[in-house]
């Protein structure tokens, strides 16, 4: 009884801390949404964070006059494709590096680390040359392939780290039960690695969703623009349509918020086989 009471008090402290941090962390986002929901003429005029009642003029303007809706679809398509492919390829590799011994694997792991270390801005021109050679400039494949490849190294690293914490006894038991390496990986290891997989998936998805540099260079046609590039149509050289810009970015964040709410659930599920551990 006493323990329960103490827990309740502790929990209310936890809530308070979470709410305050949550608010502080979200200040710029509240500022963004606040601006989006102001009447267009008030976007800059009004210095309050939020205004009541909200005004949706900016949003209707965006949908009726621009192709931003299309950009949201493109981004979703790119990010989902990249995430699914990346999870599959990276978990295979991460599993192999975690389970197989040999110099090739450790060298590969170091190479993956090195690949992260070269500043992205210098990769632009050579990447462009490659994709031009492949005839993929101005197609969504160019960004899908580059995001996939750019996200692989860290995904493999992270997943290898998570697989390392799963005891090899599990693999051995599966082998005795007659599972081959692939079905051990697929049937036994993957299901109990959901928290790790989902954390990497979240990261890959958001990296792809927010990427601007490559997208702005590879995707020059209006019909294939992703959201980060689409947002730029509201930015003129030395002035911007702040109200519409903020509304468009608010629109861009909503699908990701939904994705986050769904994806984070898997962060804590899937550990049914945890009893073997330790």
């Amino acid at each position: 009884m006493k323990r329960k009471n103490r827990e309740r008090i502790n929990h209310s402290i936890v809530y308070a801390v979470l709410i305050v941090t949550g608010f502080l962390i979200n200040l710029p986002i509240i500022s963004m949404m606040g601006t989006a929901l102001k009447e267009p003429s008030q976007a800059l005029m009004d210095t309050n964070l939020l205004t009541w009642p909200p005004n949706f003029r900016n949003f209707s303007d965006i949908f009726s006059h621009t192709t931003f809706g299309r950009s949201i679809f493109n981004s979703a398509f790119v990010s989902v494709t990249v995430t699914v492919l990346c999870m599959f390829i990276a978990s295979l590799a991460g599993y192999a590096i975690s389970r197989f011994k040999g110099r090739v694997f450790s060298w590969y792991l170091t190479l993956l680390l090195v690949l992260q270390m070269f500043p992205g801005v210098l990769l632009l021109i050579p990447l462009f040359v490659i994709f031009k050679g492949l005839g993929l400039i101005n197609t969504l494949f160019s960004v899908i392939l580059s995001y996939l490849t750019l996200n692989l190294p860290f995904s493999i690293w992270m997943l290898k780290g998570f697989f390392d914490t799963i005891p090899t006894e599990l693999d051995e038991a599966a082998t005795i039960d007659g599972c081959g390496p692939f079905s051990t990986y697929y049937r036994i290891i993957l299901p109990i690695s959901l928290p790790g997989l989902s954390s990497v998936a979240i990261f890959t998805f958001l990296n792809s969703w927010n990427e601007y540099l490559l997208a702005s260079i590879f995707l020059r046609k209006e019909s294939i623009r992703t959201i980060t590039v689409g947002l730029q149509q509201f930015v003129q050289q030395f002035s911007s349509q702040w109200g519409q810009l903020m509304s468009a970015s608010t629109l861009a964040t909503i699908p990701t918020l939904i994705f986050l709410i769904v994806a984070q659930k898997y962060l804590i599920e899937g550990l049914t086989a945890g009893s073997v551990k330790g």
Binding site: A93, S98, R99, K101, G102, L127, T149, L152, T168
Partner: peptide
């Protein structure tokens, strides 16, 4: 450290192959 399938690295190579190909082609 990890024992796993250390005697049969060929399967391991096969597992890392897709990522190796992509990285060779693009990175």
């Amino acid at each position: 450290m990890r024992s796993g399938y250390s005697r049969n690295n060929a399967i391991g190579y096969f597992f890392i192959l897709p990522s190796v190909l992509l990285i060779l082609a693009i990175s």
